[in-house]
Amino acid sequence: MNSTVLLSALLATPDSGSQGFDLGKMMAIIIASIFVNNFVLARFLGICPFLGVSKELDSAVGMGAAVIFVMTLATLGSWAAYNLLLVPMGLTYLSTIAFILIIASLVQLVEMILQKFSPALYSALGIFLPLITTNCAILGVAVLNIDEKYSLGYSLINAIAAGIGFTLALILMAGLRQRLELADVPPAMKGKPVAFLVAGIMSIAFLGFAGLGG
């Protein structure tokens, strides 16, 4: 409760203009994107990789890192395309196509660059990169940033925080599923059903963050 009061006090700073940078708003975005509106557990974005890559802790960490990386780049690219190209030309209705193409080519580009210059990182992240194009969390964060009319700074912060939130959920899930291997699960619930059940219980836990930062 204390932190709620603190944060709302910070948020209420008078004349926090939308251009200026406001620490309170920044904190609110970070907390909201990681915990309150966690991309996976509250907003239902990125469920496919969340279930697909959460069987082992190592791959969960790798996927998380790749998502944070691509999310930040994609936000940069989509923000620039939207505000520097689409808005001045009055073509904002093309934003969905533009964003998905930017994300797809970014992923391809990152894959090629990594393969060439950092084989170690490539071997760690490589297999996750193609999966990321169809990860709706990436497109989701780009669309959300535009909807919320965030400036570039806030957009980037939101993207990084959303990526961290995704990674957090993924790692927690991976840890739980490793334990689950040893548990006595009814045969009908084995595999996906019990994974969803665990996700539901985690989601209940994340409901407890409601009210922090807003």
Partner: peptide, 25 residues
């Protein structure tokens, strides 16, 4: 209320999938 909140979606889906597994079996 939980049914309409985020956790409800996960939990209900889990039971539906479990039901389909039993049906298949």
């Amino acid at each position: 209320l939980i049914a309409i909140l985020a956790p409800g979606a996960f939990i209900l889906l889990s039971f539906i999938l479990g039901f389909f597994n039993i049906l298949e079996k």
